[in-house]
Simulated assay, not measured.
Amino acid sequence: MQAAALLNLLQFASPALPIGAYSYSQGLEAALENGMVKDADSARRWIVRHLHEVVAQWEAPVCWRLMRAFAARDGAAVAQWSERFIASRDSAEFRAETIQMGFSLSRLIAELGVAEAAALALLQREAEVSLPAAFACAVDALAIPHEAALLAMLFAWAENQVLVCVKSVPLGQVAGQRLLLSLRPELEAAARYAQNVADDEMSNWAPGLSLLSMQHEVQYSRLYRS
């Protein structure tokens, strides 16, 4: 990867990116409340299962398809996969999460002036912008290799999950970094799967996670928005 692309990737995969990712736990806070996650071992089990059974089965493959669609300037494919992703968000919190962060990232891309007009037009024609669509647009605008971008997307997701555990289990800082380091083979496997899974093999079927998200909507004490 060229140095410029690497620097662009580091910037747009950073938790400092002002799109609000740190404010979401994606159901993990509800799992903590229910006692499903309570220490380092259970935190790792939760993250690995969420990665392989949810993210690698749907979110990562959708992001991969959106990156290819933006590269080809295929407006129909951009609209199709963005709409499918939003439709797959089966709780109010999950839907609000992707739309809020998608809107924030798309606005950031526009304000930074990094995207070509044609690519930005593909994004802005959507009534609601999903986070994967906005991320794919940024990847195209900054000439980031797709394989690296997919790994960065997965790592950023895992890092955020680990940070939730550090704050709320609680885990120590070193334990959190040890956990994140141990996830690297899992992230690589998830990326490989997402790049090769066929359309008719993709799935967002995760009823347990959906129920936890719905419970979180009425949870008495919350630090996170999902």
Rank of each mutant, 00 (worst) to 15 (best):
A133C: 07
L32Y: 06
L171F: 01
L9R: 03
E147G: 09
R49M: 10
R125M: 13
E93G: 15
W46Y: 15
I144P: 10
A189G: 06
L183V: 09
Q11S: 11
W58G: 02
A175W: 00
A148D: 14
L66C: 08
F135T: 11
S182A: 15
S213K: 03
A175F: 00
W205P: 00
G27L: 12
R45T: 14
S42H: 02
A31V: 02
S221M: 10
F94G: 10
S226C: 12
D41C: 03
A43S: 14
R178H: 06
Q124P: 00
V162E: 02
G20A: 11
W58D: 02
V139A: 06
A134K: 07
L6F: 08
A4L: 10
S130K: 03
Q2V: 00
D41G: 12
W81Q: 04
L123M: 08
L10G: 00
A3T: 09
F94S: 15
A30Q: 15
W46N: 08
L122S: 03
W205E: 06
G208V: 06
E188N: 07
E83Y: 00
R95C: 09
A30F: 07
L212C: 01
S182H: 04
R89N: 09
A117F: 00
A134P: 04
R107E: 15
A138T: 12
R192P: 00
A149H: 05
A191M: 12
G35M: 08
R178N: 12
A69L: 05
N196C: 01
F94H: 13
L66K: 09
I99Y: 01
A156D: 10
P15Y: 11
P185K: 12
E93S: 15
V54Y: 14
F85D: 05
S221I: 12
L10A: 13
R192G: 06
L120E: 14
L51S: 10
A198H: 07
S168V: 00
A79I: 02
E126Q: 15
S104Y: 08
Q177M: 14
A71M: 05
A30V: 06
V139D: 05
W157K: 08
L151C: 13
R84D: 07
A194T: 04
Q215I: 01
S82Q: 09
A198D: 12
S106G: 15
L171A: 06
G176D: 07
A121I: 01
A72Q: 08
G172I: 08
A92E: 15
V169R: 04
E188I: 08
A134R: 05
A117D: 13
L154R: 06
L105S: 07
R44M: 09
